[in-house]
């Protein structure tokens, strides 16, 4: 009950935040420009697929920064005390934040991709094979974003300095999220989409579990 309430609450807050507004409009715009300034394919890779990877990488990094800095700032301003004196689980506070930001991000990336695909459809470049590859890229993108967001929360919970949380989220967040596609370079039989999704879920659950434990041990 409190998780749903907190999730809707956080969603309301993040959906109106400046970073999210940039993502809502910026990513589709980016997608639009990439479609027009790039050649139709890059070594066999459709532009929509490239768009999916670029926007999810940018979106994931920005979200990780937003999550880490907002958690550090809220910790420093003692925001959580008023929640924790009520029947609210600490895990719900963290999960609500993660789910709210991740949902906003997935929507922003989906809009960007839809823009790309629509342009492809209008210009007659939409090929079924490309659609599959683009969908696969989307899966890789959202899996990677999921890891990045959980890493953003990790640094938010762990450190007390806003700039440090932002720097760590940028550098380590994007680096670590890319590990989900690494195995496909070495084992060709693996389906990159399925592998990314599986690894994304497992790694996210693992990091979020650590986040919940760390947050539960915090003294407010």
């Amino acid at each position: 009950m409190s998780l749903l309430l907190l999730f809707l609450d956080e969603l309301k807050g993040y959906a109106k935040s400046k970073v999210m507004i940039v993502l809502w409009f910026g990513l589709p715009l980016l997608s639009f420009f990439i479609q027009f300034i790039s050649p139709q394919t890059l070594e066999g890779m459709p532009i929509s697929s490239l768009v999916a990877l670029i926007v999810s990488s940018i979106g994931g990094t920005l979200s990780a920064i937003m999550l880490s800095t907002s958690i550090v700032s809220e910790k420093n301003r003692h925001v959580y005390e008023l929640f924790l004196i009520r029947p609210v689980r600490r895990s719900s506070l963290i999960l609500a934040k993660y789910l709210a930001v991740y949902l906003c991000l997935v929507i922003a990336v989906s809009i960007s991709l839809t823009v790309g695909l629509l342009i492809d459809a209008i210009t007659g470049d939409l090929i079924k094979n490309y659609l599959d590859i683009t969908f696969e890229s989307l899966i890789i993108g959202v899996s990677s974003m999921s890891i990045t967001c959980s890493i953003g929360i990790f640094f938010g919970v762990l450190v007390s300095s806003v700039p440090l949380a932002a720097i760590l989220s940028v550098y380590l967040g994007s680096q670590l999220s890319s590990i989900i596609i690494l195995p496909t370079f070495f084992v060709e039989i693996l389906n990159p989409g399925i592998l990314a999704l599986s690894l994304g879920v497992v790694i996210t659950i693992f990091i979020m579990s650590i986040n919940v434990i760390l947050f539960s041990k915090k003294q407010f």
């Binding site: 807050g13 935040s17 809220e74 301003r77 005390e81 004196i85 029947p87």
Partner: peptide, 18 residues
Amino acid sequence: LHNLIGFHPQEAGFQEWR
């Protein structure tokens, strides 16, 4: 018991968007 108690903390803030 939590519902019997109201707490005015010394420093607690609120999220700015509220």
